[in-house]
């Protein structure tokens, strides 16, 4: 199973009278299950945009993304929803990842309800998830503001794992975290990948992280992607 990104181009602000600004052109690479593709590049080159397009949240100006050999932009209805679940996004800022007015348990239960897990199974599911990400059940009764960045980023990952995704787009997953917590989260990500054979698109400006995590790497610069190995 793979996610093929073919000749993606993106322009912003293109209209009837303006050319628009080109973000990147003819970007192609492939995400394999259980492997990590590391995407590097200076800030402002459109790494995050590329990530959002890969997850199907934004449309490219040109080019296509293929999941199981079908274009994701042609999907509709139930197929589209199924795809949306299979490719998930994780963002940079953990303090912003949870609704500040909901306790963690409510955020989690809403997801379980969404994926139609019957009510009696929900506590078990939650417990298994918390065990996976290495947190105790106490966090459930907290508000996001009462948890540390590391704990929230783990929970953000756990929340995504409930949906059993095949691919996760990690958009700077550790750049808002402390150095020591960053190491924890990176290891957790590796563990999760081994266990469920999830494919990662890891976006980061830190070469050390990319080198540590990735099976193949690409550098996005001046609107072009250079696949390094």
């Amino acid at each position: 199973m793979s996610l093929k990104i073919k000749n993606l181009s993106k322009k912003y602000g293109a209209g009837l009278f303006s050319e628009g600004t080109e973000i990147f052109r003819e970007v192609s690479f492939t995400l394999e299950a259980g492997k990590t593709f590391g995407l590097m590049g200076p800030s402002g080159v459109g790494k995050s945009t590329l990530g959002r397009i890969t997850a199907g949240l934004e449309k490219p100006t040109d080019g296509d993304v293929f999941y199981k050999e079908t274009s994701i932009f042609g999907l509709a209805g139930a197929e589209r929803t199924a795809f949306r679940r299979k490719v998930q996004l994780m963002f940079q800022d953990p303090t912003d990842a949870f609704n500040p007015r909901k306790k963690i348990d409510r955020s989690i239960f809403e997801i379980l309800k969404l994926i139609k897990i019957p009510e009696p199974e929900r506590p078990d599911k939650t417990r298994t998830m918390l065990e996976t990400i290495g947190l105790s059940e106490e966090v459930l009764s907290r508000f996001p503001a009462q948890l540390s960045g590391g704990q929230l980023q783990r929970l953000a990952l756990g929340r995504i794992l409930l949906l059993e995704p095949a691919f996760i787009v990690l958009d700077e997953p550790t750049s808002a975290l402390d150095v020591s917590v960053q190491a924890q989260v990176l290891h957790l990500l590796k563990q999760v990948q081994e266990k469920w054979r999830i494919g990662y698109l890891l976006i980061s400006h830190d070469e050390a992280i990319i080198n540590f995590m990735s099976d193949s790497r690409g550098l996005l610069e001046n609107g072009k992607l250079r696949v390094l190995d």
């Binding site: 150095v179 020591s180 917590v181 960053q182 190491a183 924890q184 990176l186 290891h187 050390a208 992280i209």
Partner: peptide, 19 residues
């Protein structure tokens, strides 16, 4: 020791648990 271990050049070895 743990802090230094979690640096990139030392291989991101984390300190277990959280503060």
């Amino acid at each position: 020791l743990g802090l230094l271990g979690s640096l990139p050049e030392n291989g991101f070895v984390p300190i277990p648990g959280s503060a």
